[in-house]
């Protein structure tokens, strides 16, 4: 096992625009690692979301398309249907996938499109300045819930997208992990790899939900943010394989 810990070739040698302690950089690397390991670099087409990861095509060295807000899975459906030999995946945040794009998400999953979806759940809208997302935790302070999210004010409960999609017949694989610690990063790698292998074997819709820290919006240091995921977020969003 020589040179075990080196950056993957599908990840460009550039600096990212992400904040200090953000999980996107780790997740970009994991996706690139999976694609390198499965030898998909010439076959893969990614679809980037609107959100902090909108510039993902600057960081990945393979084909990436951009989609309108929330419509990444709809665009991916079109790409996959017209070029079925390609491996198509989407990379979406929670404001994109769970809020404005929940219709596309549900129907793509229900149709059982042979796609892979990487869902980054950071419990807020990061890029637009920290508004409440459907996945925001009860009591979490955001700019639109300054006293903390409270179901008594009609703000609802955290939306568990993976559990929501689990009963649909078109869905073949659902897993949730966190990248708050190195063990979780390794586990996430295994889940994402499994989701890509499912698409190669034409099993249907696969989604990996990743709990990712957003220290800037949560007003925490990166270490506090990682601890908050391990102590608070995993209670609401339990980790593990949800459907296989």
């Amino acid at each position: 096992m020589k040179n075990e810990f080196l950056p993957p070739k599908s990840l460009r040698d550039v600096n990212t625009h992400y904040c200090s302690g953000c999980g996107h950089g780790i997740l970009h690397r994991l996706v690139a690692q999976v694609i390198d390991e499965l030898g998909l670099r010439e076959r893969v087409i990614g679809v980037a979301p609107v959100g902090c990861a909108v510039l993902a095509y600057n960081y990945w060295d393979f084909d990436v398309s951009e989609a309108a807000h929330g419509r990444a899975l709809a665009v991916a459906t079109g790409i996959k249907r017209s070029r079925p030999e390609k491996i198509v995946f989407t990379y979406q945040g929670d404001g994109d996938l769970a809020s404005i794009g929940i219709a596309e998400t549900l129907h793509t999953a229900n149709r059982g499109e042979n796609l892979t979806c990487v869902f980054v759940n950071n419990a807020c809208y990061g890029m637009t300045g920290g508004q409440m997302a459907p996945t925001t935790m009860i009591g979490q302070k955001t700019t639109t819930t300054p006293w903390g999210r409270d179901p008594a004010f009609g703000e609802g409960w955290p939306l568990k997208v993976s559990e929501l999609l689990a009963p649909l017949k078109g869905v073949s694989y659902l897993a949730r992990s966190s990248i708050s610690k190195p063990q979780g990063v390794r586990q996430t790698y295994q889940y994402i790899k499994k989701a890509f292998i499912n698409q190669i074997e034409k099993k249907g819709f696969s989604m990996v939900e990743v709990l990712s820290p957003c220290p800037t919006i949560w007003k925490k240091t990166p270490i506090e943010a990682a601890k908050w995921i391990d102590q608070e977020m995993v209670k609401e969003f339990p980790l593990g394989v949800i459907k296989e």
């Binding site: 020589k2 810990f5 996107h24 950089g25 190195p182 990063v185």
Partner: peptide, 19 residues
């Protein structure tokens, strides 16, 4: 010890661990 934890948790590809 070469466990690679620093590489795994680094989001900005600063760290390389060589054995």
């Amino acid at each position: 010890s070469g466990c690679g934890f620093c590489f795994l948790i680094c989001a900005d590809r600063c760290i390389k661990v060589e054995k």
